[in-house]
């Protein structure tokens, strides 16, 4: 039986800036990381493996360099990885992406049953949180989002109980398997890769599934299959402050000016 972790390689958004002229993301020189929420999905899959002996497969859709994310998954200990990469997949929105991932999981399930799929709650670049639910819908899996604890799994009776972390409250729900879970950071602490598995990850062949293999209608995937259009990307406007005094030459004077300013705007509590 498989537990599948769906992961995504994203730019390290803390290092991404928006080009003020073209309003596009300046991605040059920005390193890629595994979407942080997805590392929790990998960790939870590995914990289920330890408990129930599942085989863990990590899959991602992306350009060829997305194999970095899969190598990271191997270094954490997953058994199998699949890179879904094809020019036809490019430019996909969440709808088209979920179609490709769904098809891949269906292909995988011809090898062995897939009772559980785990995704991160959302990615840090798109922030839509739609791909996981999209896959669940297409596969007709029960959909358990924002999970911060798996309370109980009963494989034989096909039952799962999880706790969902919602705004201001928790919700404990029971569902039938197969299920798709999206997990929040609080669910676990991702393990730090050991050196032997890092070396294994460096040497592993990464299998690539393209559309010749998945055979999806090219009109329904990639840019063509994506109804979403990005109209504009921009940084929210922030009022620019002013520099008062000279903190280097006269720190005391500058501090005085600052405090006067804050007092005049009634920003200090005295």
């Amino acid at each position: 039986m498989y537990v599948v972790a769906c992961i995504k390689q994203v730019p390290d958004t803390t290092q991404v800036q928006i080009d003020p002229v073209t309003n596009t993301l300046k991605r040059e020189g920005v390193p890629f990381i595994v979407n942080p929420f997805d590392t929790h999905a990998i960790e939870e899959s590995l914990r289920l493996k330890d408990r129930f002996g599942f085989r863990v497969a990590a899959i991602t859709m992306g350009p060829p360099n997305a194999e970095y994310a899969l190598r990271k998954a191997i270094s954490m200990g997953v058994d199998e990885v699949i890179l879904l990469s094809d020019r036809a997949f490019g430019g996909a929105d969440t709808l088209a992406t979920s179609k490709v991932l769904t098809e891949a999981i269906l292909k995988l399930s011809t090898k062995d049953e897939v009772p559980l799929i785990i995704c991160g709650r959302q990615t840090i670049d798109g922030d839509t949180a739609q791909v996981g639910p999209g896959i669940a819908t297409r596969l007709n899996y029960s959909q358990l989002t924002l999970v911060d604890r798996i309370e109980h799994i009963d494989i034989e009776n096909r039952k799962i109980i999880v706790r969902r972390k919602l705004e201001g409250r928790y919700e404990i729900v029971e569902s039938i398997l197969p299920s798709l879970l999206t997990v929040v950071r609080e669910i676990n602490k991702p393990r730090y890769p050991k050196v032997p598995s890092r070396l294994l990850a460096d040497e592993s062949e990464i299998p690539i599934w393209d559309n010749k293999f998945l055979k999806l209608d090219e009109q329904t995937i990639g840019l063509k299959g994506s109804p979403t259009r990005v109209v504009k990307i921009f940084s929210p406007e922030r009022e620019k402050g002013e520099i008062i005094g000279d903190g280097l030459k006269d720190p005391e004077g500058a501090a005085k000016l600052l405090i006067e300013k804050l007092l005049s705007k009634e920003l200090l509590p005295f």
């Binding site: 390290d12 290092q15 390193p31 990381i33 602490k189 393990r191 730090y192 050991k194 050196v195």
Partner: peptide, 19 residues
């Protein structure tokens, strides 16, 4: 070999490696 260390170090290790 074991990835066993005080948990504060996890952030340190990842921060240095990634950032």
């Amino acid at each position: 070999m074991e990835s066993k260390f005080p948990e504060e170090l996890l952030n340190l290790f990842e921060n240095i490696e990634q950032r």
